[in-house]
Design a protein around this nucleic acid. Structure first.
Length: 563
RNA sequence: UGCUCCGUGGUGUAAUUGGCAACACGCCUGACUCUGGAUCAGGAAAGUCUAGGUUCGAGCCCUAGCGGAGCAACCA
């Protein structure tokens, strides 16, 4: 009688949700929630960015707010429109939208300039004429305070004049910078009169040659947040020490109660790969992989080409959570996420990677039958398809052994197996080549055992996938393994991650045989090759020369037993 | 010899905010199965980095230590 008392325990909240709810409860920022995803357009997005994207857009969604897309394009020497487009594509692929809120830090160059001018006038910024080396030396070290620049106390008028001339192109790159005047003795290195503007004469991908000075990250990020009305600026842990500076600039800028708040969370690390843009760029540049979208890459375009679904990526991100602990997440959890998703939605088909010819000696040579086979045993609404069956078929080489070990449930001389969706066959003999290798297997079939037939329920140990030799389509199948053989390739101080590159990360299989229903498969179509794994049609695939990528193997108990 | 952050099964996270350490992945058993997949049932696995303290009671609060990470680009 107490059914209604069942305890509905809300999902536990991570620390950022807790912080947001506390801000909401305290009535901060008028109850508004506004986040932003701020990539620098200098590379392709990877799964670590997906973690940030899911948080930024996810928090906005959950609390009825908005999330802006903002390109952090303050360094024209590294950035390019090529990246802008790919970033937008990847965010959309994940299923998030920024609607019309596509912004650029470069949109604010004017406002940022005005703010810098204001700081100079208030005696809070100055132009420093020293070299990068001199400034760096005066900065001190984490354990020693810095010393003040000889230009630190020059007049606001002089700094202002110089700052204007810097932007007119009068001075060379590196000859002068604008610095915030804070505290050269601060225990926080970032507060030791940080450089906020530098001279850069490379044209900017959006503003061209309009500017000769560009704001540094620290001078652009918080202020951009402020200009956009961002309430929660979520970023990764390494920016923790930047937060006092973020707050310092906001303090100089704010005019009322509104203020954006930076909160840091742990970056995503995955086992057996590298995640820094720099290292990924090197792999691409040096041809270690075939581009940013190589299916072995942890980039979103790589995962997409590999056959990952956006849902599986989001599910994975959801599983790992957000904390402040620097963790390394197991790729096998990612693989679990894609298997879970594809198990539910991927149509089953037959694909034979290493074909072994089987002749069913008592099956008429001119007969072709069509077997009706379910597309997905998990969900009968996926319907059925017809698969041609004939006297000559291919099975997987691994599914036959002349001298099988104990517990080998597959085909062997004298043994019976079921051909999935067709008949039970018995091996009656083998044909060998000169080297003594089995090149063909002879079997007989039992017509009574046809699926749905009178003897269909007869138990046999194994069920094999197969394709009719005359009807099968040739395919190239690319098998992928981990790019690195070490769990944490960048975790070794004195060893280049490349020392751990896995030479077998790509295996190209040619002459594979797949069932004819795959003739019209298009790039990115996903299938389960039954008993083998999940596969996805590659961009290189053409009608008549199909190419598949293996997304992930099926769990394979037999393989495990054999180890 | 500084500052900031972080230490919970193998891994990633929880713990009603001071009240019986839980969940997922992985692993092991068994059942079922026309995928050695999936599914279902069960199991092993941490006593919360260490030492003190506060408290009736500490994973949670305090102190000290140990360990790890980040911080000295005119990168973000």
């Amino acid at each position: 009688m107490k059914e209604s008392e069942e305890i509905i325990k809300p999902d536990s909240q991570h620390f950022i949700e807790q912080a947001i709810e506390k801000d909401l409860a305290e009535g901060k920022n008028g109850g508004r929630i506004h986040t932003r995803f701020p990539p620098e357009p200098n590379g392709y997005l990877h799964i670590g960015h997906a973690k940030a994207i899911c948080l930024d857009f996810g928090m906005a969604e959950k609390y009825g707010g908005r999330c802006n897309l903002r390109f952090d394009d303050t360094n024209p020497t590294k950035e390019d429109v090529e990246y802008v487009d790919s970033i937008k594509e990847d965010i959309q692929w994940l299923g998030f939208t920024w609607e019309d809120r596509e912004f650029y830090a470069s949109d604010y160059f004017g406002k940022l300039w005005d703010f810098a001018v204001s700081l100079i006038k208030r005696g809070l910024a100055y132009v420093d004429d020293q070299s990068a080396e001199a400034i760096s030396e005066q900065k001190g070290t984490p354990t020693q305070p810095g010393t003040e620049s000889p230009f630190r106390n020059r007049s606001a008028e002089e700094s202002l004049d110089l700052f204007y001339r810097m932007n007119e192109g009068e001075f060379d790159e590196g000859s002068r910078v604008l610095r915030a005047k804070i505290d050269m003795a601060s225990p926080n290195m970032h507060m030791r009169d940080p450089i906020i503007y530098r001279i850069l004469k490379t044209p900017h991908h959006r503003t061209g040659t309009e500017w000769k000075v560009y704001p540094m990250y620290d001078f652009a990020h918080g202020q951009s947040d402020y200009f956009e009305g961002i309430t929660h600026s979520l970023c990764t842990l390494e920016f923790e020490v930047h937060r006092p500076l973020y707050d310092w600039f906001i303090d100089q800028l704010k005019t009322d109660d509104y203020r954006p708040r930076q909160i840091e969370f742990n970056r995503l690390n995955l086992t057996y790969t590298v995640m820094s843009k720099r290292k990924l760029l090197e792999l691409v540049r040096d041809g270690v992989v075939n581009g940013w979208d190589d299916p072995r890459m942890p980039t979103l375009c790589g995962l997409r080409r590999r056959g990952y679904t956006p849902e599986s990526v989001k599910r994975f991100v959801d599983l790992i959570g957000y904390t402040k602990v620097e963790a390394i997440n197991d790729v096998s959890l990612l693989e679990y996420a894609i298997r879970e998703d594809l198990n539910r939605r991927a149509p089953r088909v037959f694909g034979v990677l290493k074909p072994l010819k089987v002749t069913i000696t008592n099956y008429p040579s001119d007969k072709v039958d069509h077997m009706e086979i379910e597309n997905n045993p998990e969900d009968e609404t996926h319907g059925k398809r017809l698969v041609p069956f004939s006297r000559d078929i291919f099975i997987e080489q691994d599914d036959f052994m002349e001298n099988p070990p104990h517990k080998f449930f597959r085909l062997a001389p004298g043994q019976e197996v079921r051909l999935k969706g067709a008949y039970i066959i018995r091996c009656t003999g083998v044909v060998k080549n000169g080297a003594g290798e089995v090149t063909e297997v002879h079997c007989t079939y039992d017509p009574e055992t046809r699926s749905g037939g009178p003897q269909a329920d007869r138990k046999v140990k194994g069920t094999l996938h197969w394709v009719s030799a005359a009807h099968a389509l040739d395919a190239e199948i690319r098998l992928y393994d981990r790019l690195f053989s070490d769990e944490d390739p960048s975790g070794h101080k004195d060893t280049d991650p490349r020392e751990f590159l896995n030479p077998g990360s790509l295996t190209v299989m040619k002459g594979c045989k797949v069932e004819p229903s795959l003739a019209d498969a298009e790039p990115l179509d996903r299938f389960q090759f039954q008993r083998v794994g999940y596969f996805c049609v590659d961009y290189d695939s053409r009608p008549g020369s199909l190419v598949f990528n293996r997304t992930v193997q099926l769990k394979d108990t037999w393989q495990k037993i054999n180890k």
